[in-house]
Nucleic acid binder design. Sequence first.
DNA 1: CAAGATACCTCGCCTGTCAAGGTATCTTTT
DNA 2: AAAAGATACCTTGACAGGCGAGGTATCTTG
Lengths: 107, 107
Amino acid sequence: MSIASDLLRGNTDTIILASLAEHDSYGYLINKEIMAKTEAQIELKDATLYSAFRRLEKEGLVTTYWGDEEVGARRRYYSITEKGREVYGQNKAEWQKAKQMIDSLLV
Amino acid sequence: MSIASDLLRGNTDTIILASLAEHDSYGYLINKEIMAKTEAQIELKDATLYSAFRRLEKEGLVTTYWGDEEVGARRRYYSITEKGREVYGQNKAEWQKAKQMIDSLLV
DNA sequence: CAAGATACCTCGCCTGTCAAGGTATCTTTT
DNA sequence: AAAAGATACCTTGACAGGCGAGGTATCTTG
């Protein structure tokens, strides 16, 4: 059984930023990598992913450009911005705190 | 700064069940106890709390009864059911797994 | 007597998730 | 050569949970 999406909510953007913090990437690949790392227990549905991208772009946390594949399907790459890295750091810190607080309530 | 509600979402019901697993309680008190335990970093807004109660009741995870206060504001008490304890256990396990998975993605 | 704490509740908006639908290209199988 | 499956993108509309804003009633304290 995979993780309930409500438990992921609030971390989706952070998870995407984490992926982009390592290297530029594109939707399909980000998803594959997440599934690989979590043994498919976490999967971002593509509608979720693309709405997250739009949000992140709007907030200036990522930039985007089209890949120059001469063969195969086109890819839209995303790149994390300086501001994106800052927010990523803050989000991670908040996640650490949230984890701790929730744990303190669940006996 | 308190915890973003999207990080709590998915744990609200579990947090309430945790509280009721210790002793019967009522809305106002549950909230106070949560705030005390987390130094006010987690706070369930009362609209959130009452909609959660309705949900939990509907699912048969809690039962409710009016307190017999002869003085002061009336209190509606909640009691966790056997099924509630089961679900609580499952939710805790899922939370443990989710934590681990998310951590494995945030480098 | 006013203010604040205790204690309950509803309505309607907002946000994020996602099922369902779509397009286009390439590879593998039949 | 046609079908199936993988790669890769995207939009729309419905749904659920959180919560701001509003309300009621009682008790305590300054």
